[in-house]
C-alpha cells in the first residue's frame, strides 16, 4: 500500500516540445500509462506508440517500479 515508485518517462518528436525529453516520474502503486499521461497533461490522442521497456503496450497497461516508458506521436520514415 502506498508503495513509492520511480518510472523513467521519455518523450520523443513533437511530444517533447514544451515538456521534456527524459524525466523521472514519482508516484504511488498501481499506475497505468493512462495515469501518467494525465498527470503530464498529454492527451491520449497525441500518443500513437507506447513502449514499456521496449515492448509495445497500450494506455491501459500497468507500469511498475523501475520501468522505462517511451512515448511517441505518429511517426514514420524508411
Amino acid at each position: 500500500m502506498g508503495v513509492f515508485m520511480k518510472v523513467t518517462v521519455k518523450l520523443f518528436a513533437s511530444l517533447c516540445s514544451g515538456r521534456f525529453a527524459v524525466g523521472v516520474f514519482d508516484g504511488g502503486a498501481a499506475l497505468t500509462v493512462r495515469d501518467i499521461l494525465k498527470s503530464l497533461n498529454i492527451s491520449e490522442g497525441e500518443v500513437s506508440i507506447i513502449f514499456i521497456n521496449g515492448r509495445h503496450e497500450d494506455v491501459s497497461a500497468a507500469v511498475r517500479d523501475g520501468d522505462t516508458l517511451a512515448l511517441f506521436p505518429p511517426v514514420g520514415g524508411g
Binding site: 521519455k10 520523443f12 518528436a13 513533437s14 500513437s48 506508440i49 513502449f51 521496449g54 517511451a70 511517441f72 506521436p73 505518429p74 511517426v75 514514420g76 520514415g77 524508411g78
Partner: peptide, 25 residues
C-alpha cells in the same frame, strides 16, 4: 491530414526513426 505524411516527415525527415527503432531494441 495523415500525421506521418502531414507532420512528422516534414518536421524531422526519415531520421525520426532513430529514437523509435532504438527504443524498440
Amino acid at each position: 491530414r495523415h500525421p506521418v505524411t502531414g507532420q512528422a516527415l516534414p518536421a524531422y525527415g526519415t531520421n525520426v526513426l532513430t529514437n523509435i527503432i532504438n527504443e524498440a531494441g
